[in-house]
């Protein structure tokens, strides 16, 4: 007989015991629902709803340039953001709003920029290059919440959003 069709045995006993069978039956139904929610959460987590997975990875491409980043981050967890730039003539500029850096700490930039400047809340990093180039940024989420920001790579704007879990 399937478990769902089983009728729970009633017992006459002389123990001083508040068995409350009705509550047990309700509890088993809630338990099954809870398991379903737990496993659903687990599957979503494996897929990347809470970061590091197919649901989290995003790629945007424009004018031959592209950005790869993670949509979902966790507080103080590390992540990577990569810019692939085509047709570099001499210099690469990477412009990141300081508002973005309130949420995301740039732990590393590879290759190292030649210099940087901050004007009107925008920090611009300068690189030397020719042909195609990739810039890797090591990130760490420093503040929980949602941050949407426009990062400009060689005059190509990319609007990205991170959802940072606490």
């Amino acid at each position: 007989m399937p478990a769902s069709k089983q009728t729970i045995e009633n017992v006459r006993h002389n123990l001083q015991l508040d068995e409350n069978l009705h509550q047990h039956k309700k509890g088993w139904i809630i338990q099954k629902t809870g398991w379903a929610v737990l496993y659903a959460g687990l599957i979503l987590a494996a897929l990347g709803l809470f970061g590091t997975g197919v649901m989290s990875y995003r790629t945007q491409a424009r004018n031959g340039n592209s950005i790869k980043y993670e949509r979902f981050l966790r507080y103080e967890s590390e992540a990577e953001m990569t810019f692939d730039i085509a047709e570099v003539e001499d210099t690469i500029t990477l412009q990141i709003p300081q508002y973005y850096m309130e949420y995301i700490h740039l732990q590393s930039i590879t290759p190292l920029p030649l210099g940087n400047q901050t004007i009107d809340g925008q920090t611009t990093y300068f690189f030397k290059g020719r042909g195609t180039a990739s810039i890797h940024c090591g990130l760490m989420a420093k503040k929980a919440g949602s941050v949407t920001s426009t990062i400009v790579v060689n005059k190509t704007p990319f609007t990205i959003t991170h959802q940072i879990y606490p």
């Binding site: 089983q6 017992v11 123990l15 508040d18 509550q23 047990h24």
Partner: peptide, 20 residues
């Protein structure tokens, strides 16, 4: 915390309760 549950009565396993 729930409540206690009898799973054996008079030498007989209450199988449905035990399964649950």
């Amino acid at each position: 915390e729930g409540s206690p549950l009898i799973i054996v009565a008079n030498g007989r396993m209450l199988q449905h309760r035990a399964n649950k």
